[in-house]
Computed example of a mutant assay.
Amino acid sequence: MIGSRLRLARTAADMSLRDLSAAIDGLVTAQAIGKYERDEAMPGSAVLSAMIRVLGVSRDYLMNADQLALEGVDFRKKPSSSRREEAQVQATLLHRVENYLMVEEILALESMVWDKPRHAPYPLHDIVEADQAAMQLREAWGLGRDPIPNLVELLEERGLKVVCEPLADSIDGMTAYIRRADGSTIPVIVVNALHWGERQRFTLAHELGHIIMMMGSGLGEAEIEKAAHRFAGAFLMPAEILWAEIGRHRTNVSLGELFSLKRLLGVSVQALTYRCKDLGIVGPTLFKRLFDEFKAQGWRSPPYAEPEPVPKEAAQRLSRLCFRAVQENMLSEGRAAEALGITVRELDRRMSVPWEAFRAHV
C-alpha cells in the first residue's frame, strides 16, 4: 500500500489534495486521492504514473513497504512559522533520509552508527552547566580546544544525519529521530540551506545541544533554549581559545579583533560578543556599547547579515556516495538526483566540476 508515502510526497511538494488532483489534470478527484492516502483504494497505473511525475518521486519510492517513523521532533523557529511549513519540513526530512539510507544500502555500507558519548545525554539542571556539557562532548570526541572547520562533516562522521534544505525564513532548523523498521534510531538535524554560514553553524551546534543534553524538569521552555544557545557558544568557542586570543577581561574591544575571531571560529561577531559576556570577558557596559554599534551597522535587523560571511555548511557525504554509486553503475542518475533533491543536469554538473565551483551558487 502506498498511503503514507503518497501523503509524505504530497506534503513535501507543498500540495493539497485538490492541488494534486488539478496537477494530474483531474484524472481522479481529491476525494479519491484521500482514499489512496488512507489505503482505502489503490490508483490505476495511469493515475500512479501521473502522480509520480508531478510529485517528482520514483515508483519504487511509493511502492516500497519499508517505513521510517519520525520521533522527537523539535523545531528551532520563530512564532510566525506555520503548521503547514513545519509539516513540509518533516515530510522532506523523511524523504531525504530514506533516500540516504537507500544509497548506503546499494553500496553495501553500514549506516554510520551514532557515536553517542558514554555518559550522554548529559544532565542539565542549570543553564551554566551547558558549558560543561560542551566540554565533555569535545573530550569524548577527541576535539581538544581547536576550532571546528567543518561542523557538518564532524556530525556526519559521528553518525548523525544532516539535511541542508531551503526552508522558510521562520525556521532555522530542527532535530528529530528516525526510527527504522528494526527499531534502531538515527538522530537527524535539519538546517536552513538559505541561511549564511555562521547562522547555520550556530543552529547546528544549538540542535546538537538538544540531542546531547537531558534538560532537568525544573527548566522552562525559555531556559531550555537558552541552555542550547549556551551549549552552542561553548562548543564552537571554547573558553581557552577566547582567553588566549582576547584575554580574560576587557574594557574595550575593536571590531577588527572580533572579525579576526569570526574568521578563526566560524561564528558571528554577535555570537562572539554573547560568549564573551557569558565568560565575563566583557562587562554589561561594553556589551551594550558593542551591540549599539551592531545595531547602528544594521546587523541586528533582518536579514541580520554581517560583513565577511562565513562559507555555508553543506552535507557532502550523501553527494559523495551518490557520485560513487552512479560511477559504479549501481544507481541511475535519476535516482541519484532524487536522493540529492536536484535535477539530473545539476547532478551532471556537480560530478564534472570541483566542489567549490558550484558551492558558491548553492
Score class of each variant (00 low, 15 high):
Lys277Leu: 13
Glu293Arg: 10
Glu293Leu: 10
Leu272Cys: 01
Leu265Tyr: 02
Ala314Gly: 06
Arg263Pro: 09
Asn329Met: 08
Asp292Cys: 07
Tyr274Lys: 05
Val326Asn: 12
Pro284Thr: 05
Gln270Glu: 09
Pro307Gln: 10
Glu306Pro: 09
Leu290Ser: 03
Leu279His: 01
Phe294Asn: 04
Pro311Trp: 05
Gln327Lys: 15
Leu279Asn: 04
Cys276Asn: 10
Pro307Phe: 10
Phe291Gly: 07
Ala339Asp: 00
Ala314Pro: 03
Gln316Phe: 07
Ala314Val: 07
Val310Ser: 09
Lys277Asn: 09
Tyr274Cys: 12
Pro311Thr: 07
Phe294Val: 03
Lys312Glu: 07
Phe291Gln: 13
Arg289Ser: 14
Arg275Glu: 14
Leu321Gly: 00
Pro303Arg: 01
Pro302Gly: 01
Val282Gln: 06
Ala296Gly: 14
Ala296Pro: 05
Thr285Met: 11
Arg324Ala: 10
Thr273Phe: 03
Ala315Met: 05
Leu258Gly: 02
Asn329Asp: 14
Glu306Ser: 06
Thr285Gln: 12
Ala315Arg: 01
Phe287Gly: 05
Gly256Thr: 10
Ala315Val: 02
Trp299Arg: 06
Cys322Pro: 04
Leu279Ile: 05
Glu257Ser: 15
Gln270Thr: 09
Phe259Gln: 05
Gln316Val: 09
Ile281Gly: 09
Pro302Met: 04
Pro309Asp: 11
Glu328His: 15
Arg317Asn: 03
Glu257Ala: 12
Leu264Val: 06
Pro309Trp: 11
Leu340Val: 01
Val326Pro: 12
Cys276Asp: 08
Asp278Tyr: 04
Phe259His: 08
Glu313Arg: 01
Tyr304Cys: 08
Gln316Arg: 10
Ala296Glu: 15
Val282Ile: 12
Gln270Cys: 08
Glu308Val: 11
Pro284Gln: 04
Ser332Phe: 09
Leu258Ser: 00
Pro284Ser: 10
Lys288Phe: 06
Val269Phe: 02
Lys288Gly: 15
Phe287Cys: 04
Leu265Cys: 00
Pro307Asn: 13
Val310Met: 13
Gln297Glu: 15
Arg335Cys: 03
Leu264Ala: 05
Arg263Val: 03
Ile281Lys: 08
Gly266Ser: 08
Gly283Gln: 12
Val269Asp: 01
Pro302Cys: 02
Leu272Arg: 00
Ser301Cys: 06
Gly280Pro: 11
Leu261Ser: 02
Gly298Val: 07
Arg263Glu: 12
Ile281Tyr: 13
Glu333Gly: 10
Glu333Phe: 06
